[in-house]
Computed example of a mutant assay.
Amino acid sequence: LFSQVPLVEIDGIELTQTRAILSYLAAKYNLHGKDLKETFRIDMYADGTLDLMLMVALAVFKTPEEKEKSLALMVKKDKTQNFPIFEKILKEHGEDFLVGNKFSWADIQLLEAILMVEELDASVLSDFPLLKEFKTRINNIPTIKKFLHPGSHRKPPPDSHHVEYRF
């Protein structure tokens, strides 16, 4: 539709735009909330993690020096702002998942954000025991465990190889 990626072909239709694709898949696989309030919270948390992941993805378009500074700033921001928020959500909610004690696409997004940041700083969760437990719990879901197994289709973070200028 917009002559760009991502593009997903599923159920006989072509989906474009990351947020629309994720929303479609969440609805298709019942990864939304049981009501409008839960769905709103799931979408809000998922969008918060998408913001984190976008910072990593955009870093590849910077010079090596700018990229290093940008990624270091992102890790610092995650340790001081973003991860404390999710730690608080887990503490206040007191359940295994972010919303309604039901696995949702916000849980998937948070796990992916954690994994991306850990690739930059393996100790990033050292001050966040609930996020560590969350990561372990989500990683142990059989389909996710299989997906994250070495040799799976999980893609590494973008690097300079992914960015080629063709004029």
Results as ranks from 00 to 15, higher is better:
F2Y: 09
F2L: 09
S3V: 01
S3Y: 02
Q4D: 12
Q4P: 00
V5Q: 14
V5R: 14
P6Y: 05
P6I: 03
V8K: 11
V8H: 10
E9K: 15
E9G: 03
E9S: 12
E9D: 09
E9M: 08
I10P: 00
I10H: 13
I10T: 12
I10M: 14
D11S: 10
D11F: 05
D11A: 12
G12W: 06
G12T: 05
G12K: 06
G12H: 05
I13K: 15
I13D: 10
I13R: 14
E14Q: 13
E14M: 07
E14S: 13
L15A: 06
L15T: 06
L15D: 11
T16V: 08
T16E: 02
T16L: 00
T16N: 11
T16S: 11
Q17H: 06
Q17N: 03
Q17V: 00
Q17F: 00
T18C: 13
T18H: 05
T18M: 01
R19H: 07
R19I: 04
R19M: 05
R19P: 00
A20C: 10
I21M: 06
I21L: 05
L22M: 12
L22N: 14
L22Q: 10
S23Q: 09
Y24C: 05
Y24T: 01
Y24I: 01
Y24E: 04
Y24Q: 01
Y24R: 01
L25I: 06
L25A: 06
L25M: 10
L25D: 06
A26Q: 05
A26C: 05
A26R: 02
A27Y: 07
A27N: 14
K28F: 04
Y29C: 06
Y29W: 08
N30E: 14
N30Y: 02
L31F: 01
